[in-house]
Structure formats: structure tokens, C-alpha cells
Design a protein around this nucleic acid. Sequence first.
DNA 1: GTAGGCTTCAAACAAACGTTTGAATGACGA
DNA 2: TCGTCATTCAAACGTTTGTTTGAAGCCTAC
Lengths: 242, 242
Amino acid sequence: MPPKARVIPLKPPRDPAATKVRVLDAAEALFMEHGFEATSLRAITAAAEANLAAVNYHFGSKEELFQAVLTRRLDPMNQARVELLTRLEAGAGSRPISCERILMALLIPPLKLARDPERGGKDFLRLLGRAYADPAPFIRRFLSEQYAVMIARFKAAFARALPRLPRKELSWRLHFIMGALSYTLAGTDALKLIAELNPHESTNDEILLRRLAPFLLAGLEAPLPDLSAVTRELDGELGKTA
Amino acid sequence: MPPKARVIPLKPPRDPAATKVRVLDAAEALFMEHGFEATSLRAITAAAEANLAAVNYHFGSKEELFQAVLTRRLDPMNQARVELLTRLEAGAGSRPISCERILMALLIPPLKLARDPERGGKDFLRLLGRAYADPAPFIRRFLSEQYAVMIARFKAAFARALPRLPRKELSWRLHFIMGALSYTLAGTDALKLIAELNPHESTNDEILLRRLAPFLLAGLEAPLPDLSAVTRELDGELGKTA
DNA sequence: GTAGGCTTCAAACAAACGTTTGAATGACGA
DNA sequence: TCGTCATTCAAACGTTTGTTTGAAGCCTAC
């Protein structure tokens, strides 16, 4: 009898950084399900079948692990957005490209990410949408760094497509667009505020974005607000209410 | 120097439930700043100058405290929305009221809440926007109960104003509207994704909503998506990207 | 006054947290 | 074969968490 008291080892097949990926996957799933604060390193390492110390060894801290989880999918997604836009612009020559196409370049990469059957998928977008609203400074810093160049790029493109729209108005509308997008991706089946979104469709992000795109496009091209008129209406209602 | 070692007692002027309100106020501020999980009961009671046990005594648990914080402002706000809508409908007689007015009934109460100089104000809306994206089951249950009747009421009103819009499409668009609204109210100065929103305006939620309303209105009244056309466009881009 | 109710308080509870440590493990090159 | 390096591991670190406890305080009503 060979003295193999411990049965197991069985050749872990020479897989460098395997633990790191397993931890990353487990963390993504759990952060998505419970949020950052409510997810413990013990739960993550248990799900990843790794040692508790693995997180601090491979990533340094829980915060850095969270950033790694986000970066792994966010970075390629934003890069894809910019590349898509660049390709559209190149194809259009010197003519400005339509709002609709620019919007597509913004929406398609997250859509593709959502459809990715590989681990993550649309669940990751929920995590992302939640991160948008998180007050933790390290998350905010991280996200604004991640998005800065992409947003600037798209703002410039929209500005060319909508030359009559003041820059400040455009900034606001881009803000609203990112809001509706992230909220929609984050919420979906979570809050059943609007009941009759049937489950088949709500899982189908393709249809979702096909409904979102016209909505956002119309908002983007909306006429400038008649501030004085709105003011009157607003004050009227506010007065009546007060 | 008078021997005022402990300055305080000074007749706490017979104020029943004063502690409860102080705790509520402190909790609101701290939840807003750090989120639910990241805020400890010790921090709350310290800020409220109350005993640690006060929370469990007056509210039962941390979760129930959080719900109490939300209810205190959410309940009147949604009630105001419904009342405003009811008044508009009453004033219009049998004629349908315009989308714009319905939208105003939806947007004005949170605006008023944001302008309220009294404690809370717009900071509370940040807290609310964050709660929307929170995965904790007790928050989700609470919010959907809070919003159910109001949303149903507004959906019916919009359906009358937009008779040609399919109900399902309307549901989606209402979802997008709530998303853009909550995200905008939650984010504002938080994420500096869109940089050039000048500080004067970003503190002025009135102007914010005057920009948001036309955007949402246009989206709401957008033409129905030509699904087949969008499909082709989408698939084209997706193919090129893949 | 004195009983009885809410309310406050200091103290302690067990549990869970993120992080650190120092030794074991295993593979690879000298 | 040995030494070296990166990785894994069990165990413990010191905090901090939400909640509970039982006594003390205080006002009202009898």
C-alpha cells in the first residue's frame, strides 16, 4: 500500500492563476446578488473553493477585488463602444453620422455583454447599475475614471450630430440617457413596479434595448424646453399644491 | 467660572417622541451619506445624541428603522403625486389631459421635496435613488408596496392620454422614466461623468427637472419602434463587432 | 406619596467582519 | 539534490457589528 494517506491531490492540472479567476467569478456572482458591503470574503472564498487568505494575497483587499471584478468586463465594454463609434465615423467619411447610430454604438456593447452566455452576462449589468448609485468613494472614483474618456468621446460625436443643441443641454441629456440605461439594466425583474412586463421579454435584453433606443433617441432630439413656459406651469402647480 | 461641569440638562422641554425624531433625522442623513449597510447603529445614535438601544426600542431593528426613514418622506410624496393627478383630471372634466401635465404631476412632488429647506430635501432623493438599486429583499418588497398604487394610477392616466400606445410599450416607457428620474436625483453631483454641469445649476433641482421633463416627454411620445428595421441595424452592427 | 407606564441608560452578548501571520506545499531551475 | 519562489493553508488577530438585558430615571394618575 503506497502511503498516500491524503487521497486528493490528483494533479491539479498545472493551472496558473486558476484560483484568481475562480475567486473573480465567485465574487462577481455574489456581489451581484447581495451588493458589495453585504458580501463577505468568507462567502466568496467558500464559493470559489479557495482559502480565505486568497483574496488578500491575489488582490490585496476587498475593495481591490471589487474593482477587479468591475474592470474585467467594464474595460472591454467601454473599449468596444469607442471602437464601434470610431468605425461608424470612419465609414461616414466627412459627413456627420446620425444620432441613432451613435446611440447604437453606446447601447450595443452592453447588449452584447448581456447576451454573453458565458459567466456574468446580464447579471453583471445589474451589479454595474448598482455600483453607479453606490456612495462609497472608491467606487465613485473608479467609475468616473473608467467612463471619462468614453463619455467625452460620445459627447463630441453627439455634438456633431446635433449642432443646434447647446452643449450644456447635451450634457444633461447624456446624463439622463446613462441613467435610464443603467437603471433599466440594473432593475429589470428586480422591482416589479410596472407589473405587466412579461418575464419572457424582461429576460430578453435585445428586445429591451429595442424599446429603450427609440425612447432615448426621441428624448435626445427633443425640442429645447421653453423655459419660461415651463416655469409658469411649474409655479402654477406648485402654488396650487402648497 | 460657574461650575457648569455638565452643561446640558436644562429642562428637556417635555418633548415626547423627540428621541425618535432625532434618531430618524440622524439615520436619514447617515444612510444617505454612506448607504444602509455601511451605516452603523452606533454612528446613528451617536449623531442623534441618543442611546444605542434607542433604535431597537423605538423601531425594533435596523431594517425597520430604514423603512421608517423612507416612509416618512416617500409616503407623502407619492400621495401628493396621486392627489395632483386627481386634481388635474377633475379640472379637465371628461376630456383626456395631456401627457405633459400627467408628467408634471409625477415630477413636481419630488421636486418640491428636493426644494424643502427642512432637513432631508434633495439628499433624501439620493437615498431613495440608491434604494431603488439595492438588492436587499426587504427594501425591494417595501418599495414595490409603496409604489404599486401610484404607478398603476399614472399608468392608467398615461394610457388615456396616449390611446395609440400599446400598454406594454407604455409600461416600458414608464420604467425608463422612473429610471432616468431616480438616477438623476440619486446621482447629480455624485458622479462627475458629465463634467460641465455648472455648480449653480446642479444644486438647483428646479432647473434640473425643467430639462428632464422635455426629455422624458419626447421619449414618452416617441414613435413606435420599427422593430424589423431596428433588428436589421442591430444585427448588422453585432455581426460586424463579433 | 406611591404604584405603574414608558423611556433611557451602561454594559455585555455572541457573531461576523477584513486582514495578517507563519508554517506547509509543490513546481522549477541550478 | 537542494534551494527558491509563488501559492495555499489553518489559525488567530483585533474590531465592529446588531441586538439584548436589567437596572435606573421620570412623568402621570391614583
